[in-house]
Simulated scan of single mutants.
Amino acid sequence: MQLDLNLLAALDALLEEGSVAGAAERLYVTAPAMSRSLGRIRRTTGDQILVRTGRTMTPTPYALAVREQVHDLLMQVQGVLAPSRELDLATLDRTFTLRWHDALVALSGPALLTAVREQAPGVRLRFIAESSIDTPELRRGEVDLAANADRPTAPEIRSDQVAETPHVIVVRHDHPLTHIETVTAARYAAAEHITVSRRGKLTNILDEELARLDLTRRVVATAPTERATLEFVRGSDLLVTAPECTARSVAADLGLVLLPLPFDLPPARAYLSWHQRYDTDPAHIWLRDLARTALTSAMRGQGQGQTAH
């Protein structure tokens, strides 16, 4: 059986876009031509690949199983056939999907988008929300670049620590703790807390550190994003412990005060993560460099101020 590499590109586009029309637009061919390619793929594989569900197309179990392998194969073929291709930012037409922590999007996303548009106006950025469960989008090629506080453990996922910032206490103006000359660990633990957790967890590393001091705290609520917790804090006597760089960026606008944490806590770190398939992709390397600069500049710049009563 003769292999047609055009079918590999068509299959990758169909699996990425989930529709004939989207795949056709991605590869700059007509919809009828893509439909014919889908027919040939179905005959070659003996699988329907995409089946209609109402107005949308749904990938079959086989399609889901081979999606990552197909994408990797296509990347390898393109690397072999065009290993010395230079990156032309002026004509680059590509969409990157970024799954970043919401606070990092707010803090450094605008600067990244500005830099991208200045250098490559044809590039689009899709920032998507973090999931409440661990998801394999990086491995499957659905996400190009992740940024959050966790270093990935999968061997095929690369990561760089780009910045770190200390934690601070965030309270409303005129909160009882703002009238105390020194906030002790005991007074901190005695206050009512809200935590940031997209999974709704009521405990985290803070509780482990307090336990070392024979202290416990009372967490009365969780919220999935840092901005949401700050809205709770601004109208109550709740406090939240947050990375200084992200809290300081909105504290003044929300009438919030930052207080120093009265015990040692490891700093909040930000990691950039991507699949190893993109290690030598010139466009991805370019985006990683811009993202690293935007995150480092934002976190270090915002984190240099001093907390105050």
Rank of each mutant, 00 (worst) to 15 (best):
G46Q: 05
L210S: 12
T135F: 00
A129V: 02
A163S: 15
I169N: 02
P267W: 01
L239F: 07
L8M: 06
D4T: 04
T182R: 14
L230Y: 13
D207R: 04
T97L: 03
R212C: 02
T60F: 06
I194F: 01
G54A: 11
D253Y: 03
V70A: 04
G109P: 04
N204Y: 05
G18Y: 09
L239N: 05
Q304R: 15
D237Y: 09
A211W: 02
A90H: 12
S159H: 11
D289I: 03
H101T: 04
A82C: 05
E137S: 06
R55N: 13
L8C: 04
L50D: 13
T95A: 01
R158W: 05
L64V: 06
N148W: 08
R187S: 10
A63M: 04
A115H: 04
T56V: 14
V105P: 03
L254R: 15
V196M: 08
I128V: 15
F127Y: 10
I205G: 09
W274N: 07
R140L: 15
R212H: 02
R26D: 02
L254P: 13
G18I: 03
G235M: 06
Q76M: 05
D12R: 11
D289T: 08
D93Q: 15
T153N: 01
L87A: 12
Q69H: 04
E231Y: 07
G141N: 11
H275D: 15
A129C: 00
H193V: 07
A154S: 12
T60R: 11
V240C: 14
R212F: 00
G39H: 10
R42D: 04
A21G: 05
S297F: 00
T95S: 02
M75A: 13
T229G: 01
Q69F: 01
A10H: 03
D289K: 10
D214H: 14
P136C: 10
L202D: 09
A33K: 09
R151H: 02
L87N: 13
G46A: 08
L112T: 02
W274E: 09
E164V: 03
T293Y: 00
R248S: 12
L295D: 06
D237W: 04
H101P: 09
T114S: 15
L272G: 03
V80E: 15
R67I: 00
E16I: 00
H193C: 03
A252D: 14
H179R: 15
S249W: 03
H101N: 11
P266F: 01
A103N: 06
L113K: 12
D253I: 10
D207H: 12
T225P: 07
Q78A: 12
A190Q: 15
T58L: 09
D289G: 10
V257M: 14
R288D: 10
M57H: 14
A251N: 05
S84Q: 03
L239R: 04
H309S: 12
L258C: 13
F263Y: 15
T44N: 08
L74S: 10
N204V: 06
D264K: 00
S37L: 08
